[in-house]
Design a protein around this nucleic acid. Structure first.
Lengths: 206, 206, 206, 206
DNA sequence: CATGAATGAGTTTTCATTCAT
DNA sequence: TATGAATGAAAACTCATTCAT
């Protein structure tokens, strides 16, 4: 499923290290000027190596974007998964999951923003992979909700579960997309509390 | 507030006509390949005139994007305003407003998608204007909610009003952004009904 | 059969003129440094216009090589055809043809050298066209020989006709390829006389 | 006369072995894609060692081409020399020499093709050496002819001897250069027979 | 006003060569 | 000796913008 990005360098450790440098540098620049306005030379410089070296670790500029998106998905996924493995039940578990997810999104604001704004510039072959990742994220949230339904905490039809999951996910993105407005109105805690209330209210009364 | 786009041509009627051609052509192309991958030459051709003529009506490529976004905002605004002027009261008015907004977003999917995906490429000076427009949109929705509160239909604090407005707005965008998933799960009518239910549930119980 | 080279410019007169400039400039540079060591910028400069303009008239660097080869074939062909239309019969006609061909090759030494040395760098799709052209050239010579045979001037089998044609053609190229040696030993006239003698001797005695 | 190619490695045996590997690999690649389209990395890989090692045995990419051409000349020379040392006299010796030479060229088609197509890319300093080699080859053929003249087998002036030698040499190359046509018309035996007949005919009647 | 040829700065990418290990 | 990661100059090609007609 993962698109493999070609590298001329054989040592996998080194590849990993260099690509991490690259991703870090690229996110900084993409955040500032977007993917298209950032040149490969700038990325190389920001990453701390030469343009020649950059191309030892990727095949094309688009690969960098893919690497960036992939890394962000992984981190968001990981942190969310980690959170979901903690012991908690019922409503509480859903609340914690939402809070955790919002927390992750808040911690990775720049990254999340970059990912959603530039995803359309990804190489065509990477699109299915990205949609797959989005689906997985949605399913993680769905599962938490579905577990609640299974436990009898509340009643929701399958479509309602899916929609709720989408809503929660998008409310996370919203915290970054509309930060110019939302983050002036609320702290993350307030935002989290209010959105959780909304979700639960709509769930309970359905 | 509106950024003025320079034109060499004096006749305002002609300017208007040409720019409309331009916007139509540009939206088609941006939808397909995005702003950065579309060349000015292509836009000129798609609009039905030469590259030289194109530059008689704009100052730079970014101006086209601005013109496009501006036109889309205007149309969405207009159609929403129009809807809000119809006679209806209380909850019903809110429901109608949401449904109307979702309908507009659905009708203008390509445009809305383009606008949100490319807005970051807008010339720096245009940013405040865009945020202003977003704010106006939000305020239109807020007003409908606030009217309900004023009529005593339900109780909501100011921050809650604002958050609800944002949520509704973003649920509209979501219909386009996540169409690869959402539009497979629901028809527009189903989506509208479910989201309205959610919003109302969360409002009533608060 | 001819590969069409793309141009952004519409006026065919202008295209013709610019491409002629290009070909002239390119031959000068290819002669000096070969196709691969010549940059597109150099070709543009030598042709008297900018790199941007160059690419208004071709699609890729290889197209220039194709244009060059095509032009050379055309000129050699034309001049040979012209010669063959003059009134003469029998052996005399063959002699004149050979002499004419050697004369053309001598006049276009640089061009002929470039063509044969760089032909392998031609875009893959152009190869059949080039072979076709080579075949046509061979057939022109073959025809003169075959006419002699038909007139009963001498006897040659079909394969012998073909081989003789190839030999004559290659003796022409040889005048340029091995000029560092051959042109020190003979004037063009001497070379022509001697080679004609050889060919005729071998023919008569066969 | 031989251009010396610099090596960091002292052991001459090793240098010889490594360079042989290199030449073999390079010929394979040059045959396929030409000198300019072949990278040093590819040559190293095809030769069975690393790019670093490659540069222990040469000073620059051009040196490889020189090594290749030099090796080819040596092999052609050797095999021809060997043939000429067999006992035979008069016309027969000339016939055998031509046949032997054509045989060598046929056996080494790829190499011969590479050599003549890429020779122009040789480092400037190598040019005199190459011309020298070509001259030697010509002289070998010349000598055989001159011996016949000395033996009174036939009469030829010095310039005629030289021209005939060039012709024979070039007929050898022609077997590779124009193989797309010639090798469809004749087997090597037929080609050899016919060309020998031609040469002898032209010689006898002069 | 309309046209489209001309421009050249800027972009991605390649690859011969070096040098620390 | 052998390795291969690092380098950066140089190459092909693009495209927003201008301006003479």
């Amino acid at each position: 499923m993962k698109k493999s990005v070609p590298s001329m360098v054989k040592d996998p450790q080194l590849v990993k290290k260099r690509r991490e440098q690259m991703i870090k540098g690229a996110v900084r620049l993409f955040t500032e000027k977007g993917f298209h306005r950032t040149t490969t030379r700038e990325i190389a410089k920001e990453s701390g190596f030469s343009i020649g070296t950059l191309y030892e670790y990727i095949g094309s500029k688009e690969d960098i974007l893919y690497l960036v998106c992939d890394a962000i998905y992984d981190e968001v996924s990981d942190r969310l998964t980690q959170q979901l493995h903690t012991n908690s039940k019922g409503i509480e578990r859903l609340k914690l999951a939402i809070a955790a997810y919002f927390q992750v999104v808040n911690d990775m604001q720049d990254e999340v923003l970059v990912m959603y704004q530039e995803a359309k510039s990804l190489p065509k072959e990477a699109l299915p992979y990205v949609l797959q990742k989005e689906l997985e994220m949605t399913e993680m949230i769905e599962k938490v909700i579905r577990d609640c339904v299974a436990e009898g905490v509340f009643q929701l039809s399958e479509p309602e579960i899916k929609l709720t999951a989408h809503n929660i996910l998008v409310q996370g993105h919203m915290w970054t997309f509309r930060r110019w407005s939302i983050q002036k109105l609320f702290t993350l805690e307030e935002y989290t509390t209010l959105q959780i209330e909304q979700v639960l209210a709509s769930i309970r009364s359905s």
